[in-house]
Computed example of a mutant assay.
Amino acid sequence: MALKEQLNKFNKQYEKCQSTLSSIASSRPGPSTRPSSVVPAAISQKPAAPPVKFSNDTERLQFINSIRKGPVGAQIKRVIDLLFETRHAFTPEQINEQCYVDMNANKAVFESLRNNLKVHYDGRRFSYKAKHDVKDKNQLLSLVNKYPAGIAAIDLKDAYPNVMEDLQALKASGHIWLLSNADSQEDIAYPNDFKGQIQVDDDFKSLFRDIDIPSDMLDVEKELLKIGLKPVMNTAERRAAAQIHGMPNKPKQKKKKQEISKRTKLTNAHLPELFQTLNASSSRN
């Protein structure tokens, strides 16, 4: 009896499995819609990965790296050039953005700039420090007027970007004198102070004009030696050398005194007696 029950149970499970298989078979697509089992090789293969490309910013990064690994002196110059050209104050982070010098990471650069004579550091920002603190033409004129003995133009060059143009403008307007130093060949700026004009006694003027200057340089050098002054040139040696090389020695002829005319450029207006001849000719005309 038990065997018969087991057989019936088996038959029921078999029928259930057959029913399940039939439902699965009926749910599959037909032969016309069944995808082909043959796949072309070109499709079955995965597409090749694109070649690895370096970032377009690689060149810039290499340039930044070369700056930061460069000598301390070169990095200091780069920062000073930035401060000089812009005349702005920058924090270390802003300097890093502008010229790629990482001062926070390089303490040697930071300390050198903090103690540099051309750099001002207020505890947070760095800025350029010129030798003379002037910002425009009016301040430049005030500075020159404080130096009666003259101030070298080279000491004013870094005051602000167009300082040399303003210096020439002040010269052209007559506010200052800009003269070349005979020794250094550098321009010296002097104040044109009209208060310095003085009256000269007529007897002194006559004495000055009555001095007879020798026409021969040998006589001039002898007079200089008599009063203890050493002449710049040695005329005797130069003439001897000229004779040795067969060059005739021609004494310079004394130039004829030129009369002052209306077309003469007047530069000594503070000596009106020099123009008496001009005034006399003008009155005759």
Rank of each mutant, 00 (worst) to 15 (best):
D201A: 07
D183Y: 07
A149V: 15
Q199D: 13
A242I: 09
Y160W: 00
N249Q: 12
A241T: 08
D183P: 06
A182T: 14
L225V: 10
K222N: 14
W177I: 06
N234E: 12
L229F: 07
H175G: 05
A236M: 11
N162I: 00
S184W: 11
R239T: 10
D202I: 13
A182P: 12
G246M: 02
N181G: 03
I198Y: 04
L178S: 01
K255H: 01
N192A: 03
F194S: 15
D203G: 14
Y190P: 04
H175I: 10
G150C: 05
Y190I: 08
I198C: 04
H245L: 06
F204V: 13
L224E: 09
K255P: 01
V163G: 02
G196F: 03
T235G: 11
D212V: 12
A242K: 09
S180A: 14
E221H: 04
K252L: 10
P231N: 09
L225K: 15
A153Q: 00
T235V: 11
K195Q: 12
V163C: 00
K205P: 00
M217Q: 14
A242Q: 11
E186H: 04
I154N: 09
E237W: 06
S215G: 01
E165V: 05
I198N: 03
I151Q: 06
K257S: 09
Y190D: 03
K157Q: 02
I227M: 11
K252T: 09
G150N: 08
A153C: 08
I211H: 08
E259Q: 00
V232F: 14
E259T: 00
D202K: 11
L178R: 07
I154M: 09
P248L: 13
I151T: 03
N162T: 05
D216L: 02
I260M: 02
A172T: 03
Q185L: 12
D210V: 05
S180G: 15
S173V: 01
Y160D: 02
M233T: 15
P251K: 05
P251N: 07
N181Y: 01
D203K: 15
H175L: 10
